[in-house]
Amino acid sequence: MKRRQFIQNSLLATGGLLFASNTKSTSKAKLGFIRGGSPANMLDLCLEALGGLEQFIPTGAKVLVKPTLRWNQGPESGRNTNPELLAHLVEACYKVRARAVYLVDHTEDEWTKCYKNSGIERAVKDAGAKILPGDQEFLYPEVQLPQGGTMTSAKIHKVIEEVDLIINVPSVQQDSEGNYFGAFQNLAGLIWNQPANPQSLIDFVKFKTPVLNIMDITRIPGKDAVNEYKTLVMSSDIVAADSYAAKRIGIQLNSLPYLNQAEDAGLGTTNLSPESIRSIVLKNNIQ
């Protein structure tokens, strides 16, 4: 069975776009929500729902893919971004003629072990990306943030000056204290000493807004086990991406007041109209 026919026969719509043999989308979604498949196939379908990756990456662009790469943990832990997802995204960037793709993070554990044992370094290098160190302060020159409120300057990784755009790919999770980690928190890995103040992260997003946020909810670490959510949420709207990802793992938005602050700052919305969302459920994993 051909891939297109298989997709048409194996999807259920939970809202928005119905993928069926006699149905075709005539408009792009603002947010894609998909669950049930492999990371690579969910990425392809979600990008298709949003109009294709070429909508976000101009030909010849240098791209920073910002993963969660903080912990000396293997892929099965769910603590770092799924390496299969990242490798497939790197390949997709080159297919739309990106000039170069970079990855970097400021790790919590020893950086060489994080890069290696997460499986990310090998996966993205094999796909053609360059993965950069983020462990030394000299890599983070001082940058002025003219639109900043709380943070008017910051030490930001020098790759920001090299690239044309950011694709933000956080591994969505809660930490041991129950705090949510999502799109905004993931960008702290580009700032030396990673500010805990949410307003500082809002200031950073004003300075360098990701063109796309791909929320990795494939595996969520729990207290006793890793939960298989097999979900991606994707949007160019960072506020919407964080809002729908948080709800997917059972977090109430009233516990994340920074999202309203970001909305007030004009960075997005916590409540998209139903017709702008494409929700897709895969009956079976696509091989």
Rank of each mutant, 00 (worst) to 15 (best):
N9Y: 04
G15A: 13
G16M: 04
S21F: 04
K28L: 03
M42N: 15
L43N: 06
L45P: 04
C46A: 15
P58L: 12
A61G: 06
L64T: 02
K66D: 05
P67M: 09
L69K: 01
R70E: 12
R70D: 11
Q73W: 02
P75M: 07
N80A: 06
T81H: 10
A87E: 10
C93T: 05
Y94F: 15
Y102N: 03
K116S: 05
R122Q: 15
L132M: 09
G134N: 02
F138R: 12
F138C: 07
L139H: 00
Y140I: 01
Q144Y: 08
L145N: 08
H157V: 10
V159A: 01
V163M: 04
L165W: 06
V169E: 14
P170R: 01
Q174G: 06
E177A: 14
A183E: 05
A188K: 10
V205D: 00
K206H: 05
K206S: 05
N213H: 13
R219G: 00
D224S: 14
T231H: 10
M234Q: 11
I238A: 12
A241S: 13
Y244M: 02
K247C: 01
R248E: 14
I249Q: 09
Q252R: 15
L253T: 05
N254Y: 14
N271E: 09
R278A: 15
V281Q: 04
I286H: 10
I286E: 03
